[in-house]
Design a binder for these strands. Structure first.
Length: 679
DNA sequence: GAGCACTGC
């Protein structure tokens, strides 16, 4: 392991830290706590790589307003930096706040830090995530998700209760990360006593230091690079590009299995279809050979919890485990025992198209950052190997990072949030990476149609402010607002809660089970469409006592359904107590529920053209019902609204509900004059 | 006839 002498770097000396490791060896690291697990917590802390940088970190914070802390995960920065600040007395100037992109890491980190301090979480160290809060008057170190900080900004625009804010994992550049960064920059100008620490992967460091500087001012930011710790990882590239990376993945697994010493394999592919294809191919290889010591497992998001669990088990002695995974294994799930990684070099991303107001699912080359992240999944336990299914030249040509989410997403929610924070001219807001103006304008148009903003772009009262405060999309919020007036808020809240979670319908691995799932799901389907079907799933789940057995029987994903129920409870309380929305049930009046749905989705209508194909009412673009929709197999209705448009092989409508034409002029007369509605 | 992954009092 190279020893690295820390140096202070000003923003104009970018090049000095360009590379901290060999470029063939990605610098992710082992989860360092394991190495010292026999030691006491104090000794473990002392041994962390970040320990030797403590004084530099404190010095930087004394002298600069923004510290960009560069280093891979595993250096211990998320757990140690807050404690160094606390031990040095920074908490006397206001709380030390740490934002995290995910709930799980927020809670885990807070627990870990409290444990290291020999306290219970909720004393000096606390956390806040949606639904869960461990805080007290003593709390000085506060972990939270980015969304929580954004909510707090509504009540306290200058974040006066904080002395330091640490933005962890800033290199992920989620939509919320970018909004937080833009807002923090604004606050910095007004509060010279607020300090910011941006925790980032190497590749993005100079981007952040450029963002946190403004012309004519003295340097406000400084960079500090932290060396992580890892086992050696050998990296292999192809000599020639390959034509079919699924087949290449399978062949690589096979060769590796025959030649390499024991150790499990993780292969990254782009989607479920590829995972299942590779699974079939690999099983053919196994069937036609003598080798039976290879256990192949798929891993993707819509698998049931039970199927997913399989990848965490240690295989029998002498058996090698191969996990064929989508991007779930890149960030959200860590599979133990991985020594070999195979990276196909591609990723599937969602991309918003403001012209059709649709999302596209496109397969694109991974970014360098992603490739490094994937490679880092090897070498966590012991020295590992990475096989990239592209050439070294192709690697060099990769983009440094994926375009940030904010540049490729629908922006209604972001615009509402910023408006509520008093930023009237969104087009001039200082985004870390400004989104396309077209996306912003499209969001403004939608918000105007929903009556959330007026002609001047000001939030309306009460609708605009309500939509900005509710924690889900503008259209769903509008739906809830109307449902309060029409007396079916209970049903709409259930539907909204079900739409907030990932699909509750599980997608089994085997063909037989897939058939079983289709039949089971039919149990809930109704002619009105997907949202009423979700309502049915929820009632059936609750009536049955919310059991895992019920989910198993009907091929539903328990963890998603359970979360939907939690959300529903929270939304009911929130709607009733905070927003005064009358909560009534329409007791089976399905038409009333469909009307409310229309009141939210009225800008997204399709009518059945005489050619037998649906068309967008506003643009005549041809639309199709998505094959996963309830309505796919039913006779086509004349008019439907949809919640989502997805461009893959065609433009597909998702979350489809059958409506009556008259409802449009009744519920959105400002948007639909009678004459514009076609027969 | 087709489904990357997260997330918000």
């Amino acid at each position: 392991m190279a020893t690295f002498k820390p140096k202070f770097l000003k923003p104009d000396t970018d090049d000095a830290i360009a590379d901290t490791g060999g470029d063939t060896e990605p610098q992710s690291s082992a989860f360092v706590f394991n190495a010292n697990h026999n030691l006491g917590l104090v000794e473990q802390r002392e041994r962390l790589p970040i320990r030797q940088y403590r004084d530099q970190i404190l010095y930087c914070l004394e002298n600069y307003q923004v510290l960009i802390l560069v280093g891979e995960t595993g250096s211990g920065k998320s757990t140690q930096v807050p404690q160094y600040l606390y031990e040095f007395g920074w908490h006397t100037k206001g709380m030390i706040g740490i934002t995290e992109p995910r709930r799980v890491s927020t809670v885990t980190l807070a627990n870990r830090v409290a444990q290291e301090r020999g306290e219970l979480v909720g004393d000096t160290v606390g956390y806040v995530v949606r639904f869960l809060e461990r805080m007290s008057n003593e709390t000085q170190i506060k972990f939270m998700t980015e969304g929580i900080l954004l909510r707090e900004l509504l009540a306290d625009p200058l974040l006066t209760q904080y002395g330091v804010i640490i933005v962890d994992e800033a290199h992920e550049r989620n939509m919320l990360t970018d909004m937080v960064l833009g807002l923090l920059k604004k606050i910095l100008r007004k509060r010279s006593n607020l300090k910011i620490i941006i925790s980032s992967a190497t590749i993005d460091a100079s981007f952040f230091s450029e963002f946190f500087s403004w012309p004519g001012s003295k340097d406000i930011s400084v960079k500090l690079s932290i060396e992580g710790r890892m086992h050696a990882v050998n990296h292999y590239y192809l000599n020639e590009p390959c034509a079919d990376y699924v087949r290449e993945t399978v062949e690589t697994v096979w060769k590796l299995h025959q030649k390499e010493p024991p150790g499990d394999i993780l292969a990254f592919l782009t989607g479920q279809e590829e995972v299942l294809e590779a699974l079939d191919l690999l099983r053919e290889y196994i069937a036609s050979s003598e080798l039976n010591n290879l256990k192949v497992l798929p891993m993707y998001g819509s698998m049931s919890s039970n199927d997913q669990l399989a990848v965490f088990f240690t295989p029998a002695k002498g058996v090698r485990k191969v996990v064929l995974a989508t991007n779930v294994a890149e960030t959200s799930i860590t599979i133990p025992g991985i020594v070999y990684v195979i990276d196909c070099g591609y990723v599937k991303v969602k991309w918003y198209n403001p012209d059709t107001c649709s999302d596209s699912l496109v397969v694109v080359p991974v970014s360098k950052a992603s490739a490094v992240q994937r490679a880092g999944r090897a070498g966590r336990m012991r020295p590992g190997k990475v096989y990239s299914l592209y050439t070294k030249q192709d690697y060099e040509a990769l983009e440094p990072r994926q375009p940030p989410e904010l540049r490729r997403s629908e922006l209604c929610g972001a615009v509402l949030q910023l408006k509520a924070l008093g930023i009237s001219n969104i087009l001039r807001f200082d985004f870390p990476s400004p989104p396309p103006a077209k996306n912003l304008l499209s969001a403004l148009e939608t918000l105007y149609a929903l009556d959330a903003i007026d002609e001047q772009g000001q939030l309306t009262k009460p609708v605009g402010y309500l939509l900005a405060e509710l924690p889900f999309s503008a259209m769903l919020s509008k739906m809830l607002f109307v449902s309060g007036k029409l007396g079916c808020a209970e049903e709409i809240i259930t539907i909204i809660a079900m739409l907030q979670v990932q699909s509750v319908f599980s997608n089994p691995v085997s063909a037989v089970a897939q058939q079983g799932a289709r039949i089971a799901h039919r149990h809930f389907e109704v002619a009105e469409g997907d949202l009423i079907t979700l309502l049915n799933v929820h009632s059936a789940f609750v009536e049955d006592g919310m059991t895992k057995e019920f989910c198993g029987q009907y091929y539903l994903i328990y963890r998603h359904l359970k979360r939907a129920c939690e959300l529903r409870e929270q939304l009911l309380t929130l709607a009733r107590k905070k927003y005064g929305i009358p909560i009534f049930s329409c007791k089976g009046d399905v038409e009333m529920v469909c009307k409310c749905i229309t009141a939210g989705f009225f800008t997204q209508v399709a009518y059945l053209h005489h050619s037998g194909v649906y068309r967008q009412i506003s643009s005549s673009t041809e639309l199709s019902v998505h094959p996963t929709s309830t309505l796919y197999t039913l006779p086509q209705a004349q008019y439907v609204v949809y919640g989502e448009l997805l461009q893959t092989t065609k433009l597909f409508m998702n979350q489809v509900t059958v409506i009556k034409k008259e409802w449009l002029t009744e519920l959105a007369p400002h948007y639909y004059q009678q004459t514009t509605v076609r027969d």
